[in-house]
Design a protein around this nucleic acid. Structure first.
Lengths: 124, 124
DNA sequence: TTGTAAATAAGAATCATTGCCAATTATGTT
DNA sequence: AACATAATTGGCAATGATTCTTATTTACAA
């Protein structure tokens, strides 16, 4: 069910968000199980964790390389695939050849909606 | 004193690390003061916060654009200025013109020392 | 000196995450 | 089916980084 919740989900939910959804169907589900499952799914490569400046960990079902745009006004996280994202050109780092397994790129900005003064409620 | 500790420091210390150093000279210094000072220095642009996947916040005195290499074996954070780092080409993002204020890039890897089997103690 | 504002210390509060363990469930074997 | 064993789960306590609160101290100005 956790995979179903995350499949195609672009809202980057936290463990707490996911738990809230799961308990509507399986009311006794504990946080342990949610965290264990998310950890397992991350380890097998189904999910990525993203964490912005010490806030809660969010779970990203789209593991294709892409950047995340972080709006300081509304706290929303927006996936950016093109054209900013720097595709890993690993060989260029002579000190660390062939060892980079993952790249995370965070772009701090004011999002388009907030720029136009029509952003929604600020997320937690 | 906190600025002095961080000046030229490439170890990316945490608030706790900084507090430990400060109390050797000013034994009554509280965490409140350390956190308040770090927050203030961040707000005036002297420091950047960096946070890796839910670990503690580390403080980076070098605010020049650069990437961070994160070794999974020894947990060390290494500054990378060239040639990987994608310099912000902000104008290329049509959806978000002229609004990107900061870019953070994290490269997950095994560092050169660990590759050669001579890494130091794993950091906390 | 005296009043007022700012900074600080101390510790409690918060809260996401992890750890622990007993209870439950699944799996495999006769 | 009955049993043994392993894996998963639920409940909740523990952890620990960060924030909050409040009284106290310090800095500054009139």
């Amino acid at each position: 069910m956790i995979l179903d919740i995350l499949e195609g989900n672009t809202t980057h939910p936290s463990a707490n968000d996911i738990h809230k959804t799961v308990v509507t169907k399986y009311p006794t589900t504990s946080f342990s199980t949610v965290y264990n499952t998310l950890e397992m799914l991350t380890n097998v490569g189904e999910l990525d964790k993203i964490c912005i400046l010490g806030n809660v960990i969010k779970y990203e079902p789209n593991t294709d390389p892409h950047a995340h745009l972080l709006c300081k006004k509304c706290n929303r996280i927006i996936d950016i695939f093109e054209p900013y994202y720097a595709k890993p050109s690993i060989r260029k780092i002579k000190q660390f050849p062939h060892t980079i397994e993952k790249v995370q790129e965070f772009l701090y900005c004011t999002c388009a909606s907030c720029l136009k003064g029509r952003q929604g409620k600020k997320l937690a």
